[in-house]
Design a protein around this nucleic acid. Structure first.
Lengths: 195, 195
DNA sequence: GAAAGCACTTGCCATAAGACAAGAAATAAT
DNA sequence: ATTATTTCTTGTCTTATGGCAAGTGCTTTC
């Protein structure tokens, strides 16, 4: 594999698209860089783009009625960072998206997305699959929030996204798990003692 | 409006589709009836259809690791009753879908959906919008589960889906809210005393 | 119409998690 | 380096919710 291998080949496999389709798709994405702390999206604005993350970490979060910051998701290499409702319903978002580290991403705007979506069958199949995958993840998280104790949710997060812990504060992890940083600290203590 | 107005006109507005498209779409849906307690979908199976509800109430639920039944959603007139991940990823579901009352629904299978999705641009736009709408609802529910106390979640459910309470046991509402029926009973008592 | 079953409530106690505040420890800023 | 700031831990107390069991009232069933 030469150095020239394009990151987007990882997202759009040459096995599934023709050379022409791949060229068209690639031509529509643009590489963008974010510095640590940069906002990709701010509450109240409408998402004009989405991003495939090539390098770095991103966090999305919402502010609840009492002004608390609640992490809703974390994104890293290979993930799609997108606010689905805002991007597709063309409506103001309730969420923020912020770079946790310097990032390299591949960006696509709405109009360009629409054009690819309606012209390339396989592109819309893949897009739908990605969206449904996000839905599935969210539903599992939602059920877990009801059915599993916080300690189990934390352990599962550790297994599924171990790299996240390197880049996120406990406070931010805690709100993602639906608990306070204090409680998370105690859970971590218990887990440490169990080993 | 004559009696012959088709229920599906409510879903696929004649304002947005040509006569031909509407005829094609209608021809693909079939009306089906479910008796109270009938299962539309069972855990472990793959969703072969989805339904638009014309009349009646449906509940979806998952069984957690300890064997508890957890309500994941309620559907009634005008709603789409679908397990998005199972239907689109063609994979076994973790959920069950069951009629709470006798129901009349309009059913569509996967192959027929695919054909409409790829041949009618507006159909796929609307389908995407519906899916994103479900995603949005689920995300709000998910954030609410973290940010709002159970009493608030219950009050909001009362406002947003008052008709559901007529057809669902408190036990089933409680698991939807992420609490036990005992706690819900106490919350209801408090609310009654506040008035 | 007695019996069985279901839905809901209530009481008592246990437990998980929150609120708040004070320290430690680590990081960043000057 | 020294301060300042943030992050994490810990203690004490409060609160929300769960678990279990008993009791009430409503249906369903035969």
């Amino acid at each position: 594999m030469p150095d020239t291998a394009h990151f987007l080949d990882r997202i759009f496999s040459p096995d599934h698209f023709s050379k022409e389709e791949l060229a068209l798709i690639r031509s529509q994405y643009t590489q963008v860089h974010f510095k640590k702390q940069d906002y990709l999206l701010r509450e109240g604005r409408t998402a004009q783009h989405y991003w495939f993350v090539e390098r770095g970490f991103i966090r999305s979060f919402a502010i609840d009625t009492r002004g608390n910051d609640i992490s809703t998701n974390f994104y890293t290499t290979g993930n799609i960072a997108i606010d689905w409702p805002s991007f597709f319903l063309r409506s103001p978002t309730r969420e923020n998206m912020q770079a946790l580290t310097d990032c390299t991403c591949w960006q696509l705007g709405f109009e360009r997305f629409q054009s690819l979506f309606h012209s390339i069958e396989r592109f819309r199949e893949q897009g739908r699959t990605t969206l449904v995958g996000s839905y599935f993840e969210l539903k599992n998280r939602s059920i877990s929030m009801i059915a599993d104790p916080a300690k189990d949710r934390y352990k599962r997060l550790l297994e599924e996204k171990p790299h996240i812990l390197q880049n996120v504060s406990l406070k931010q992890i805690a709100t993602y798990l639906g608990i306070t940083d204090t409680s998370l600290s105690r859970i971590r203590k218990e887990l440490a003692q169990e080993q």
